[in-house]
Nucleic acid binder design. Structure first.
Length: 480
RNA sequence: GGCGUGGUAGCCAAGUGGUAAGGCCGAGCUCUGCAAAAGCUCUAUCGCGGGUUCGAUUCCCGCCCACGCCUCCA
């Protein structure tokens, strides 16, 4: 039994994570649809999953992380037609952008990143199995639907009753659609027959040309890569219904056993109090935030510092607050590393390689307890700041400092903050010669105790956007 | 209409049946030639009205407000 607890949507309870095989945890995350750059709301979820994985790792578990790339669906096809480019060209491009963004966020790479278009056969096979069992049926146009009435457990995740499905959302396209000949309005599509709008995007199947429905890819790929480690499945809360519900239906019918034990869902992100939308001009990507002067690590802090099951409200204020708070975390890191003789990169590498602490958390025990209890990051951060305040670094010998450094950096690793990126932001801008010259002149004036000249030069520098920080034996220039 | 979440200090945000973590901002102090930076200290009675209880912010009932979902969506 591990000492990590997560909230399971299936049971609506916080449960200890118990892998199905040894200490190996299979974790499947619904990944991006690659038709545009992922926005910060998408990343809120991906970052939570990253912290989840890191936390499991720190707890001593080995995680197999699978995150799919949806590279064929209505949106990707629409985009490719709009741009007049082949589908794979569009999806390749946005996949690369996604990977670059993940890297800048310091996210761990999933060991496996399967793409929908590379698993068409697996998906067709799954449909065939379901057809054979009577769980699916083909329509005259060559589409295949899942027969909802054939799966009595349908709705167990979202707790929707089947009859609510057909009657809810009055006036929605689902209800007045007469395009499909389904047995029941709630039946969902697994194979979509080729339409004119699909262009040259289609595959051959026993039911004719077409393409897989969206829900199918996750079922097929999760089974393929985590067949015997169906532990954690996670995604945004909007996926609970219908996506995950449909995945469960397909998968459990096709293999006759439980499809994933723990379902973990991340709440959405609001921007300035409302839903993010292009129309309101509050639709941000990492690039947008960086252009405003905040490195990805600051954005990471802002996006993860709320509890993952709670809606968070993203604002510019929250970025400023994140930056200041992160500064404190970084300074403690610098100081404790200095006292212990460790180097940050090397220490984090060792932690990543599996040198986890066990129970020896010292003053950081409370923080770890909160983090491992359903990823209560805000509470964990609170404990970290309290702990930091209690440590008198100047009184520590290197051995004691090393203990603090190790436990502290285990938490930093779990939270995934790239503190070096934070430093880099300040140093990134090298001062122009002219500014350096002024600063040097000021330093000389100070040396000769010419305070008037010194203050005058400091003002001049400030006017040009440069802050000067005096040190014991010199000074540092910072852009303001 | 159905489902759900939330209303805690200027802002953000944890939490608990016994008189409220933390962060940001602000103020004061220390340091400094003065500043800046940094460090330390300080700042709430938990939407409203009832009820249960020795005692509720935390449990129950009602109300008000905000937001989200029910169609594609992290």
């Amino acid at each position: 039994m591990s000492n990590v607890f997560f909230h399971n949507t299936l049971t609506r309870k916080v449960e200890p994570i118990q892998p199905s095989r040894g200490n190996l945890v299979g974790m499947y995350c619904c990944g991006p649809t690659v038709y545009a750059q992922a926005h910060i709301g998408n990343f809120r979820t991906f970052l939570s999953q990253d912290v989840m994985r890191r936390t499991l790792q720190i707890a001593g578990l080995k995680v197999i992380h699978v995150r799919n790339v949806t590279d064929v669906d209505d949106k990707t096809i629409a985009k490719s037609r709009e741009e007049g480019k082949p589908l794979h060209e569009v999806t390749e491009h946005w996949t690369k952008v996604f990977h670059r963004d993940c890297e800048r966020f310091n996210m761990l790479k999933p060991q496996i990143e399967p793409r929908a278009t590379e698993h068409i056969q697996e998906q067709i096979d799954m449909i065939s199995t379901l057809m054979d069992q009577g769980h699916a049926y083909a329509t005259d146009d060559g589409s295949v639907y899942f027969r909802l009435s054939s799966f009595e457990n349908y709705g167990k995740l979202s707790r929707l009753k089947e009859r609510e499905l057909a009657t809810s959302a009055a006036g929605s396209p689902m209800n007045d659609s007469d395009e499909y000949e389904r047995d029941s309005m709630a039946d969902f599509v697994m194979w979509k027959s080729r339409k004119e709008g699909d262009g040259d995007v289609f595959w051959e199947s026993p039911w004719g040309q077409g393409r897989p429905g969206w829900h199918l890819e996750c079922s097929a790929m999760a089974m393929k890569y985590l067949g015997s480690n169906l532990d954690i499945h996670s995604g945004g809360e909007d996926l609970i219904f219908p996506h995950h519900e449909n995945e469960i239906a397909q998968s459990e019918c096709s293999c006759n056993s439980q499809f994933f034990k723990y379902w973990i869902h991340c709440a959405h992100l609001l921007v300035e109090g409302g839903k993010m939308s292009k129309r309101l001009n509050n639709f941000y990507t990492v690039d947008d935030i960086e252009k405003k002067g905040f490195p990805p690590v600051v954005l990471r802090y802002a996006l993860t510092s709320g509890a993952y099951r709670q809606t968070i409200n993203f604002t510019m204020d929250s970025l400023h607050a994140s930056q200041s708070a992160l500064g404190r975390l970084k300074r403690f890191s610098d100081d404790i590393l200095g006292a212990s003789g460790f180097k940050r990169a090397a220490l984090l590498k060792a932690i990543e390689k599996g040198k986890h602490l066990g129970d020896d958390w010292g003053v950081f025990a409370a923080a770890w307890k909160k983090l491992s209890n359903d990823l209560n990051i805000p509470a964990a951060l609170g404990s970290i700041f309290t702990a930091i305040k209690s440590v008198r670094i100047e009184e520590l010998d290197p051995e004691a400092a090393a203990k603090y450094a190790i436990s502290y950096h285990n938490l930093i690793y779990a939270l995934g903050y790239d503190l070096d990126q934070f430093i880099a932001k300040k140093v990134r801008v090298d001062a122009p010669e002219e500014i350096k010259k002024l600063a040097f002149e000021r330093w000389e004036a100070r040396q000769s105790k010419d305070w008037a000249t010194s203050d005058q030069l400091r003002n001049a520098l400030q006017k040009q956007g440069w802050k000067i920080l005096d040190k014991k034996d010199g000074y540092v220039l910072e852009p303001m």
